[in-house]
Design a protein around this nucleic acid. Structure first.
Lengths: 186, 186
DNA sequence: TCGTTACAAGAACGATTGTTCCAAGATAGA
DNA sequence: TCTATCTTGGAACAATCGTTCTTGTAACGA
């Protein structure tokens, strides 16, 4: 998963997977099937571990969209700061090479992305129902905007922008979620 | 350039370039050199044509950051709507595969990205000096945020989000540039 | 018409791709 | 200890990668 995450699907060779797993070629194939099947299992693992942590942080404040999404952005930034995992986001990276992917992988990526949007939108509508948030725009656009911002954080990081600067980017993006009273005071 | 734009650098083969250009293999090599040199020339052409149009739209309203960036987002969306060019953005797409690129190409992509950030920041500071904009945050974070948003527009489009929805995303992102008086009225 | 130059097309190269095969070794239960 | 099952490492496969070479042909000045 780390190798795919670092280099992308196309650029990852079986040899690199053999070296990094320490397995033999035939063991890799007999255990995980071909490259595509292995990649799909890596996507599943990424969803269960990395993406799940983000969703967790998001749903920690179900009543306040600003706190929830802010927590998710924080989780993203702390992960980007660790040097143990590759930079960027596996889902975003794979979405960028969408046109060269198998239809099965394309569909999987679409699912992962739309699941993120759905989760963010759920938090937005829940927060709106509990009174607070007078944030502008419909929940759909807002959710896609926030997921897009998360993707751009990962992409900018991959392009070399340091995490310290990304913190400012995330804070700027969150302004659209702030109630007007708070904005007037700042 | 279109083939690289559609499939990315790694996934593009010489054969596809031969077919799409209508040239022979040896003609390609004698005229443009190897794959990397050809790609660098494609990046230059992309900068002169596609990216230049965006910068043009950006600098059309030097005194009003909201109008300027809004115009740039509009230019991005109208380009994404055309089916003659591939989806997404060549620079963003290449930045995603950064880790597998030659140092020379990496440096070129870094240049292109930082040039975008610099252009946006210049508009922001100019607009701020002329009175208007009380937008929050420092100009650096704001510029990186806006360029990141532009990238996420291209990326979301590549992931299948229709342009109609992206219009809402862009409008949402622009909220951070609106003066507080306008926000209070909306 | 000639000799030179420039350029096209396609064959061919070694290297690398994803995948399979095969033989040797480890493991487990009885 | 014996046998059956599983797993391993590495050779080998066809296909494809980026690149180069050779050959034929068109263009051009004298």
């Amino acid at each position: 998963m780390t190798v795919f995450w670092e280099r992308g699907y196309e650029a990852t060779t079986i040899d690199q997977l053999v070296v990094s797993t320490g397995l033999g070629r035939s063991s890799l194939y007999s255990t995980f099937g071909d490259k595509e099947s292995l990649f799909l299992r890596c996507l599943a693992r990424y969803e269960e571990t990395v993406a799940a942590r983000l969703l967790e942080a998001l749903q920690r404040h179900p009543s306040d969209a600003l706190l929830a999404v802010g927590g998710m952005f924080d989780a993203i930034l702390t992960r980007l700061r660790t040097t143990t995992s590759p930079s960027g986001c596996l889902i975003t990276l794979t979405a960028a090479e969408r046109s060269t992917l198998t239809p099965a992988v394309q569909a999987r990526i679409d699912d992962l992305l739309s699941a993120q949007v759905r989760a963010v939108r759920a938090v937005l509508t829940a927060s709106r129902q509990r009174g607070r948030a007078p944030h502008a725009g419909d929940a759909d656009s807002l959710a896609e905007y926030l997921v897009g911002t998360a993707q751009s954080l990962a992409l900018l990081h991959r392009a070399g922008v340091p995490v310290a600067k990304l913190r400012g980017v995330a804070a700027t993006a969150l302004h659209v979620l702030k109630p007007l009273e708070v904005l007037r005071l700042s």
